[in-house]
């Protein structure tokens, strides 16, 4: 299928992109890697009058270091994040999760920013971003603001990025030396997560000192399994102790029921995947 007609601009700076957005108002749609937006336009689920392509804005691309943070430009592709030693070393949970997104072709085009603003609850980038307590840099005509991960995801396909604003970067606090694992459950290769669990832990002498757990597709937004995080602190990284702590993985969640599984099944999966993810992250 072919999208409805639209006007197209490809600004080369954030300032020009914001000006184009302001001028077009809500008739405009921002295009990043296009791996979610183009299917939507092709199916005519949306028909913007103007498409503003961020693909030529170099300042939005790339990974850098800023003190205790790794900074990833919104237009950095999945493939470039996967290739980044900085991300692997300091935020390995993100590397693990992005390796599980879609397929190589889509990872060559899709961007971290596009994935996060699209905010599909079954998407694989939200839960690790949340677990790593990522800060979201949002830029509008009034300047830049930073939003905490806990406030970024608001509802199904809804984030803190307002009309006329762009997500320009994410700032991921360094978790150097933390173990990490993304456990994604699918029935067939190349499927969206039925449920996935993102776990990163700091182990100190065989004991879990700190844990961060994010859940994919267990509600309308990515969620933190805070009960499990707390229960894990001070526990030995053994199967028995981790199993017990992870029994609370579905607490406070509201997973969907669909052809891939009903919500009870997803709750069960969350506990199993959390145990696997934590044990692997702890190197046990």
């Amino acid at each position: 299928m072919i999208p409805a007609s639209f006007d197209y601009v490809a600004p080369t700076s954030v300032a020009d992109a914001l000006a184009a957005l302001a001028e077009a108002g809500d008739d405009a749609k921002v295009l990043a890697g296009g791996q979610s937006l183009l299917p939507i336009l092709r199916m005519r689920l949306n028909a913007p009058e103007k498409v503003i392509d961020l693909g030529r804005i170099e300042e939005l691309k790339g990974v850098s270091e800023d003190g205790d943070h790794v900074v990833i430009g919104a237009m950095t592709t999945y493939a470039d994040v996967l290739a980044s030693d900085l991300v692997r070393q300091h935020a390995g949970l993100l590397t693990d999760a992005i390796a599980e997104v879609a397929d190589p072709q889509i990872r060559h085009r899709g961007t971290v920013g596009g994935a996060l603003v699209h905010a599909d609850p079954a998407g694989d980038v939200g839960a690790p971003a949340l677990a790593l307590e990522t800060e979201f840099v949002i830029t509008g005509s009034g300047g830049e603001r930073t939003v905490a991960a806990a406030d970024f995801f608001q509802d199904l396909f809804e984030t803190a990025v307002g009309e006329g604003e762009l997500l320009t970067a994410i700032r991921v606090p360094k978790h150097t030396g933390w173990g990490h694992r993304y456990e994604k459950f699918v029935r067939v290769s190349h499927q969206w997560s039925i449920v996935a669990v993102a776990a990163t832990v700091r182990v100190d002498g065989g004991t879990i000192a700190e844990a961060r757990i994010g859940l994919t597709n267990m509600g309308s937004t990515p969620l933190r399994a805070t009960a499990v995080e707390q229960a894990l602190v001070g526990k030995a990284a053994t199967d028995e102790a981790v199993r017990e702590a992870c029994a609370a993985a579905a607490e406070g969640t509201n997973p969907p029921s669909d052809l891939n599984g009903d919500s009870d099944y997803r709750r069960h999966l969350a506990t199993v995947l959390a145990r696997r993810a934590v044990l692997a992250a702890a190197g046990a």
């Binding site: 295009l31 392509d53 693909g55």
Partner: peptide, 13 residues
């Protein structure tokens, strides 16, 4: 030099 799905890329891109 990198693989893409050409049904999911605009010619203008």
């Amino acid at each position: 030099g990198r693989s893409v799905k050409s049904c999911n890329v605009l010619a203008v891109q």
